[in-house]
């Protein structure tokens, strides 16, 4: 429950330009030069900071003229300090999916297919976040995939700005379709976007061995019963691996009390 509270506070903090929601405008003050840790669209009318993933792609588009030291530095800092703790605690789009999963329905259990699908996000990271911005000069993930951008930026801005409505075409339809698919499946697949698609989670996952804080298992207490991995709704092979969002739900099922959160 503490985690939910942190997630909610975080979502509000990222998006506290409340007047933006009323008039459909984007806050463009100095704070917008700062990257937040989680996936939160720059173009959300409430956003007071920038999405690190969006900033990275945009910076890569013009990296010929200027190397994106700041964005890469922030991403590395978040990764080294927190890793996927960001996913579990500081990502509004993760929160949205978790809330949708609370809607009563039949739930899809993780299986071999979801484990394989969990590698797709690394391909998305390389192709849409790095290669497409560098070669085609467009922010590939933001433009063609990101459902957080459609939900937080696209829908509110387009619904309030007639000039933007005049620009709508096939791309917007496609992105609405992606959003509807992600939102719809989130009801019965736990954090499907995070597990299979999100390149930001993929990036933070790369730090699972080195990040400063996270879940840790006391090997002297562990009896290798695997109850933690069986209970986890993510596609983890071990507690604290690249798929682990450090949420700590496994702590309660460990009858040896071997799992804790803290400095690794």
């Amino acid at each position: 429950m503490r985690r939910k509270l942190i997630q909610i506070i975080c979502a509000i903090l990222y998006n506290c330009n409340f007047t933006g929601f009323a008039d459909g405008t984007i806050y463009q003050g100095d704070l917008k030069g700062v990257c937040v840790p989680g996936l939160n669209c720059y173009s959300c009318p409430g956003a007071i900071g920038s999405c690190p993933l969006g900033s990275l792609q945009t910076a890569l588009v013009s990296s010929k003229y200027k190397f994106p030291y700041y964005v890469l530095g922030m991403l590395l800092l978040f990764g080294v300090l927190l890793g996927r703790v960001v996913c579990g605690y500081l990502c509004p789009f993760g929160l949205i999916q978790e809330l949708l999963y609370k809607i009563p329905s039949k739930k899809l259990k993780k299986n071999r297919v979801t484990k394989i699908l969990s590698y797709v996000k690394y391909i998305v990271l390389v192709v849409f976040v790095v290669v497409i911005p560098l070669t085609l000069a467009v922010p590939g993930f933001c433009k063609y995939i990101c459902p957080a951008g459609t939900l937080e930026g696209g829908v509110p801005l387009v619904s309030m700005d007639e000039r933007l409505q005049a620009l709508l075409g096939g791309l917007f339809s496609w992105k609405m379709l992606v959003l509807i698919l992600v939102i719809g499946t989130a009801i019965f697949i736990f954090r499907g976007f995070c597990r299979f698609i999100c390149p930001l989670g993929a990036f933070y996952g790369l730090f699972h061995k080195v990040s400063l804080v996270g879940m840790k298992v006391d090997e002297s207490k562990c009896n290798h019963c695997n109850a933690c991995v069986a209970h986890c709704k993510m596609d983890v092979k071990r507690v604290g691996d690249a798929e682990c969002i450090q949420c700590g739900e496994c702590k309660g099922v460990c009858n040896r009390c071997a799992i804790s959160f803290g400095k690794k």
């Binding site: 030069g33 500081l90 959160f261």
Partner: peptide, 28 residues
């Protein structure tokens, strides 16, 4: 108790990161 310790740590980290970010802010 472990949970309380954990959330205290997170709050501390959140504060630290906010300060870091504000320090960097605008100073582009």
């Amino acid at each position: 108790r472990a949970e309380r310790k954990q959330s205290k740590m997170l709050v501390a980290m959140a504060l630290f990161m906010t300060m870091m970010m504000l320090a960097g802010c605008g100073n582009t």
